[in-house]
Amino acid sequence: MRFPKVAVLAAVSVLLTPGLARAGETLVAVAANYTAPVKEIAAAFERKTGDTVKFAFGSTGQLYTQITQGAPFEAFFAADDERPIQAEKDGFGVPGSTFTYAVGTLVLWSAKPGVVDAKGEVLKTGGFNKLAIANPKGAPYGTAAVETLKALGLYGALEAKLVQGNNISQAHQFVATGNAELGFVALSQVALDPSGSRWVVPRELYAPIYQDVVLLKTGAANPVASAFLAFQKSPEALAVLEKYGYGVRK
C-alpha cells in the first residue's frame, strides 16, 4: 500500500507536536502507599485545571533507581525523606524543591476480624502463620515495621515468620489474599476499608515516616508538574490526606 507523501508528512508532524493547543500533562513517580490518595488528589487537580496527571507506582527504592537511570518522571513522591534529598544532591532533583507532603502511619492489619487486637498483643502470642512486611531495603514502611518489631523486642522471635513484599502494595496483597494472616501496611491502604482487624502502631515505636516529594529536572520546565506539587498543600489535598490517615509535618 502506498500513501501520498503529503499525508505521511501531515501524520508525522501531528505525532511530533504533542500538546499543541491541548491541556498540559505530567508524569509523576509515586511510592505505592500513596496510590489511592494521589489518584483522588489528581482527580481534583484535573477538574480544576484541565491538565492530566499520569502515574508510575512502585517502591521508593525501585523508583529512585529508575530515576538515576533516566526515567522520564517529572516529580517523585517518595515514602521517605532521604531519597528526594539524595535526588537533589545527585543532580536529578531541582535544588530546594523538596518538601514533606505527608507523614505516614504504620498499621498492623489482618483481613480477618478478631485476629489483631487493639493493642497489638497478637505479635507477642505469635498465634499466626506469617507476618507480611514491605522489603525494608527499598520500602520505608518495611523499615518502620522492622523498627517497630525491634522496639517491641520481638524481631528475633518473629524473624522466621516474616515475608516480604517488594513494596507496600504487595505486602497488603499478601494479607488481603489471606496468604499471610498479618501484615504491617500503610494506614492509607486500609483507612477506607472497614473489614478485618487492625492496630494502629503508636508513633513512638518507629522513626517518623516523613514522605517527601521532589521536582525532578525533567519536569523543571513543565508548569503542570510544579502546579501539581503546589496543589499538594491545597485544602482539597489536605482533606484527602486526612481521610487516608496521614499526618502533616509540623
Binding site: 533507581t65 522489603n135 531495603k137 527499598g138 516480604q164 517488594n166 499478601f174
Partner: peptide
Amino acid sequence: GGNIPGETKVLSMAILDYVETL
C-alpha cells in the same frame, strides 16, 4: 515467594534487592 532469606530469596530476587538499593 515473599523474599525470605534461605527459603525463597533466590538469585533473581537478590539482584532486584541490590538494584533497588543502588
